[in-house]
């Protein structure tokens, strides 16, 4: 099902369909890793005060630190994935978009569940 028709992309400088798929594939994988990172760093920073203090010291506020590091991870892993020969098949791109939705859903439940536990149960 891979779409290799480049006829729509004859403009100078326009990426080919293969390149478009690769960019999308790379950044979807990067987004999955970024979402997992946000969940892990959020919980880890609450459980490990030195980590929260480190983020505060370097970035002025722990929340700013989490945001900036997440942006960095998204950009760096996305670019690194572009270098590696990932498949361009639609199946795998769809698979990773579904994985992103699942990771975000589970991650949101994990974050909320963690703060409920910390506030009411612990």
């Amino acid at each position: 099902m891979e779409n290799n028709n480049n006829s729509k992309n004859n403009e100078v400088g326009a990426p080919s369909n293969g390149m478009k798929s690769k960019i999308l594939h790379s950044f979807v994988i990067s987004a999955v890793i970024t979402v997992i990172f946000i969940v892990v760093v959020t919980i880890a920073a609450e459980l490990t005060p030195p980590l929260k203090d480190f983020l505060k010291t370097v970035f002025y506020h722990h929340w700013i630190g989490k945001g900036i590091v997440s942006l960095g991870i998204f950009a760096i892993i996305g670019v690194l994935c572009l270098i590696f020969p990932l498949g361009k098949k639609d199946y795998w791109i769809s698979f990773w978009i579904w994985m992103l939705a699942i990771a975000a859903l589970i991650g949101s439940l994990a974050i909320t569940g963690f703060f409920i536990y910390e506030a009411l149960i612990k």
């Binding site: 099902m1 779409n3 729509k8 990426p15 369909n17 478009k20 798929s21 960019i23 999308l24 950044f27 979807v28 987004a31 970024t34 979402v35 997440s70 998204f74 639609d90 791109i93 769809s94 978009i97 992103l100 975000a104």
Partner: peptide, 17 residues
Amino acid sequence: FLGAIVFLAIWLGEGRF
């Protein structure tokens, strides 16, 4: 990040996803 992927998938995916 979720919004960026929806944006990229629509702009680069051309209706395939």
